[in-house]
Amino acid sequence: MPVDATQPYDPNNIFAKILRDEIPSKRVYEDEFALAFHDINPVAPQHILVIPKGPYVSWDDFSARGSDAEIAGFVRAVGIVAREAGMVAPGYRLLANTGTDSGQEVPHLHVHIFAGRRMGPMLTR
């Protein structure tokens, strides 16, 4: 079910539980600002999620309330994960949904990194 990105952060969302180790995940990267793990329902041969460790609902929420250090650390983490996974060549796609119209399903900011095959057009025309 899509998320209203203007709602307050829900500390019981699945990614918050993963951050607290209440739900297992196949982690590939972690630092003080971000956690990256394999998506449990991948839609590409390589599908990794990167989440900030802070309680942010969406990209909009994060850009408004996150500290400069959190924002820089999160963006760097996304790049590190893509490089370490060997996604840079021949390429990868980043996707961050925000709100109901985008189809955001978990009320915690997350970036999908897709790779391992041609992605095709961004949207169906």
Rank of each mutant, 00 (worst) to 15 (best):
Y92T: 13
D68K: 07
K53R: 09
A36F: 09
F74G: 14
F33G: 01
V3Q: 04
A89Y: 04
G91E: 15
Q104P: 06
M119E: 12
E70M: 11
G103A: 13
N97Q: 10
P45I: 03
A89N: 13
E105Q: 03
P11V: 14
A82T: 08
P2L: 08
R27H: 03
F37K: 08
V3N: 04
F74L: 14
M87L: 11
A5I: 04
F74K: 12
S25R: 10
A115V: 02
D68W: 02
A89C: 12
I23D: 14
A44S: 15
A5R: 01
G116R: 03
V111K: 01
V106I: 09
L109V: 07
Q7E: 12
L94Q: 07
Y9C: 10
M119D: 09
K17S: 11
D39A: 11
P107F: 00
L95K: 11
R118L: 10
V43W: 04
L94H: 08
M87G: 05
L35R: 01
Y56C: 04
Q46D: 09
V111W: 00
H47R: 13
Q46C: 01
F62V: 11
V28Y: 03
F37M: 09
P2W: 08
T100S: 10
V78Q: 15
Q7V: 00
H112K: 00
I40H: 07
V50Q: 00
V3R: 00
T100V: 09
V75A: 13
A72R: 09
A69R: 09
A77N: 12
I51H: 00
P42E: 06
V28E: 13
